[in-house]
């Protein structure tokens, strides 16, 4: 057979294309379920860990079913929207929409004595996207509280992660020393106005209700975290105030 001829070359390339395409399609279809499950497991681990529950790959499903008692989608007026699975919402796409058209996912987590709302957040760091989950704990209403009572104003836990922040600097936002200070901070001021948690350069007092220490050398990423909390949580403020479940 003449390997130089046109028809041979043509037939040869067709065969190669068909064989390769079939192989790849088979491999991709066979491995897709495992890949999707990885993504799902990671997301569930993140949701749980923002509620201070550590889950391994093995027990994540069990813990998730046990603690995450409800999940739903709301709009910026705080009304529930039916028919949208909060787990499937792509936050990046939602944030491009005007505030009053966003679909906002909420995950409810029931611990022994308290109820948490887990809210996903997404924003921009220095190099690329940063994201995370923030959980807010429901305050107990006391008789002295007036009409300005806000049930969800205190942060219970927060975790953050990033795609490619500078190692050793901005990348440290996924470390506990940065995340733990967010606990017990408050996102509404005394008169009930929403404000973000400020990430400040050195020396945020422990007593401060809305400031945490930034990362020295990772200022832009730290500011990114602050902006992310601001843009993502602000749409929920009506819901945080009104939810009287």
């Amino acid at each position: 057979m003449n390997v130089q001829s046109n028809s041979y070359t043509f037939v040869y390339s067709s065969i190669i294309v068909v064989v390769v395409a079939t192989l790849l399609a088979l491999a991709a279809t066979a491995l897709k379920p495992a890949q999707d499950r990885n993504v799902e497991i990671e997301k569930k681990q993140n949701i749980l860990s923002s509620a201070r529950i550590t889950a391994s790959r093995e027990n994540v499903q069990k813990l998730y079913d046990q603690y995450i008692t409800d999940s739903y989608t709301i709009n910026s007026k705080g009304e529930k929207i039916e028919g949208i699975d909060p787990f499937e919402i792509n936050l990046r796409e939602e944030l491009k929409k005007p505030q009053d058209q966003r679909n906002l996912p909420v995950f409810e987590c029931t611990l022994d004595d308290s109820l948490l709302l887990v809210i996903p957040v997404y924003g921009k760091g220095l190099w690329g996207p940063i994201w995370g989950y923030v959980s807010l704990v429901r305050d107990k209403k006391t008789p002295s509280d007036s009409a300005s009572f806000i049930p969800y104003k205190k942060i219970y836990g927060a975790i953050f992660d990033h795609k490619g922040e500078t190692p050793g600097l901005g990348a440290e936002i996924n470390q506990a020393f940065f995340q733990i200070p967010f606990r017990n901070k408050v996102i509404f001021d005394g008169s009930g106005r929403f404000h973000s948690i400020k990430v400040v350069k050195g020396g945020a007092g422990l007593s401060s209700l809305n400031e945490v220490d930034g990362i020295s050398g990772g200022t832009i990423t730290s500011k990114g975290v602050q902006a992310m909390l601001d843009t993502c949580l602000v749409s929920y403020q009506t819901y945080f105030k009104s939810s009287n479940k």
Binding site: V3, Q4, Y8, T9, Y12, S13, I16
Partner: peptide
């Protein structure tokens, strides 16, 4: 392999 499309293959 046909020499002309060697690199592509």
């Amino acid at each position: 392999i046909p020499p002309r499309i060697r690199i592509i293959v």
